[in-house]
Design a protein around this nucleic acid. Structure first.
Length: 560
DNA sequence: ATAGGGTTAG
């Protein structure tokens, strides 16, 4: 703490230093606790009104510590006349925060106060518009770029290419690109990224091949394009070819494998990354925790947790905390999830969502609902995800009245319109409670269009309660949606079978045969044993995975 | 400046 304080003073008195360089504060202040300590020592030493000191502090909280953006806003509000660099820092930090709207409103404020933007301002504002998919706002900002004469500046133009390529009009992006210098690698990469994000990988690849110059980002753009579409073979080919790799290159590959469900590959990538000496960062660890959560690899998750505690002795970030809660909950260790939750000094909505969802998923409905109430007492605003989880909790607990109460609360008090998942939860809740007619009524009167899942939920509930008539009606609606999921037929077949209506079973079977629907054989994966050791986590090398045969009762429903 | 991660019904 005191070292950091000394560093600020050194920084402030060093007149020759370039403001845009990495200052010690920016490099060393990596968590909100250290940040607050530095701020406190600044106040004690009378540095809190020093403009350069404040600027450094704002940079650290807005850019270096992603979860400290609100702190940055508080600091920013104390400055009477922020300079352009500080405005840009705030817009940049807000654009990369989970709430990019603030970046747009900062830009508006900046205009009202007659602060003239520079070429650095627009890339950040347009990034926010892109993240929000605010096409109209982005186009209005395009007008400002022209107004301030940055259309012919490579920063301004590339920011426009980025915006139009990703969410505006790709033809506009293309035209702007044609006006670029032939060897502007940022323009090439921005356009390529846009085509890749739209799924036009062929066009993206053509551009990539045609680039007169490529840098590391160009390669990362193309690899990302493949990885996000699940084309991991192509991603791998480029990864093997790339002349230089950085932490992003590795992260893209790891996240791609996790996305494609190839968790073993993801872990192999990570091991390889460590072997060649690339330092993993927070994004790496988040992907790995996601892999553990998806595959139920509790022991690896625990080891990641341990190494995280060693790496970040000053406390884990909110994002890592949330990922740990989710991992522990999904791997069945709800106690550890609660421990992480209680140990977090800073929490956000996702933190609460992770634990409320985890508890609901594990059948601890009362505890889940209790925490939701605690959240409301603490005036933390639940979002639509929170309500999905709370409704799951009510559904599993059989709390029909409470569920209805929360469903109404969502709109009346929090102004959140129910989405298809909320409605799905309500149907599930009513269905489980045996209120099948009420569930049917709910679907028919709800404001949004029901989807197949909703009808399938009712169909499943009809099976549980042995209601052939409602099952038939639900199935009629379901099949009317022209989908070919074998589970729908199987469920209906099960309803008939459970009631001994054998000709009904036969009819459904015939329907399945005629439409060419096939029921896949069910199965589950569990860890049964492991052998050997890994250089990373100590004693683990490979899993022997056992395939558990489906239960015998299932055979009744499987096709010939 | 352009590239990377995140919780949600059955």
């Amino acid at each position: 703490m005191f070292n950091c304080g000394v560093m600020i003073r050194k920084k402030i008195t060093d007149k020759s230093s370039n403001l845009h360089q990495q200052s010690p504060l920016r490099r060393n202040c990596t968590n909100i606790k250290t940040l607050k300590q530095i701020h406190a020592s600044m106040i004690v030493d009378g540095f809190d009104s020093n403009p350069s000191a404040l600027r450094e502090l704002i940079y650290a909280s807005a850019i270096s510590i992603p979860s400290a953006i609100n702190y940055a806003h508080q600091l920013f509000a104390q400055i009477t006349r922020p300079d352009l660099f500080t405005w840009n820092t705030m817009i940049r930090g807000s654009a990369q925060s989970p709430n990019p709207i603030t970046a747009v409103s900062l830009f508006t404020q900046m205009e009202k106060r007659h602060v003239r933007p520079d070429n650095c301002t627009f890339p950040f504002v347009l990034k926010a518009c892109t993240k929000l998919s605010w096409v109209k706002t982005g186009c209005a900002v395009h007008g400002k770029v022209v107004k301030f004469g940055f259309e012919w500046n490579s920063f301004g133009r590339n920011a426009l290419i980025y915006f139009h390529a990703n969410c505006g009009d790709i033809r506009v992006a293309s035209e702007l690109f044609d006006g670029s210098e032939k060897d502007d690698v940022v323009a090439w990469s921005a356009l390529t990224a846009g085509y890749a994000r739209r799924g036009e990988l062929g066009v993206a690849r053509k551009l990539f091949n045609e680039m007169p110059v490529k840098d590391l980002v160009s390669w990362n753009v193309m690899i990302t394009g493949y990885a996000k579409r699940g084309e991991m073979e192509s991603a791998r080919e480029l990864f093997d070819e790339v002349p230089k790799r950085d932490v992003v290159t590795w992260n893209v590959m790891i996240a791609g494998y996790v996305f494609s469900g190839e968790h073993e590959r993801a872990l192999e990538m990570f091991e390889e990354m460590r072997r060649v000496g690339e330092q993993p960062d927070e994004v790496t660890m988040l992907s790995l925790l996601c892999a553990c959560a998806d595959s139920g690899a509790l022991d690896i998750g625990e080891k990641i947790h341990c190494s995280l505690l060693e790496m970040h002795s000053g406390g884990l970030s909110i994002l890592l905390g949330n990922a740990l809660i989710d991992m522990y909950a999904k791997c069945g260790s709800i106690q550890k999830a609660l421990e992480v939750f209680r140990g977090m000094r800073e929490k956000d909505v996702s933190t609460w969502n992770s634990i409320i969802g985890g508890l609901a998923f594990h059948g601890h409905s009362e505890e889940s609902i209790r925490l939701f109430e605690e959240m409301r007492r603490l005036k933390i605003r639940p979002n639509e995800i929170t309500f999905v989880e709370v409704l799951v909790a009510c559904s599993h607990a059989g709390e029909v009245k409470q569920g209805h109460r929360y469903f109404n609360l969502m709109r009346d008090e929090y102004n959140i319109a129910p989405n298809i998942k909320h409605c799905g939860c309500m149907v599930d809740m009513l269905g489980r409670a045996g209120k099948l007619e009420e569930a049917f009524e709910f679907i028919d009167t709800m404001e949004i269009q029901p989807n197949a899942i909703v009808w399938r939920t009712l169909l499943g509930a009809s099976r549980v309660h042995g209601n052939v008539e409602l099952g038939r009606r639900a199935n009629e609606r379901l099949l009317g949606m022209r989908n070919d999921q074998s589970g729908d037929y199987v469920l209906l077949s099960n309803i008939y079978a459970s009631q001994g209506v054998w000709d009904g079973v036969e009819t459904v079977r015939k329907l399945m045969d005629d439409s060419g629907v096939r029921k896949e054989v069910g199965g589950s994966l569990i860890e049964t044993n492991y052998v050997g050791s890994t250089p990373l986590f100590g004693d683990r090398d490979e899993y022997v995975v056992g395939l558990v045969r489906p239960p015998v009762a299932f055979v009744v429903t499987a096709p010939r």
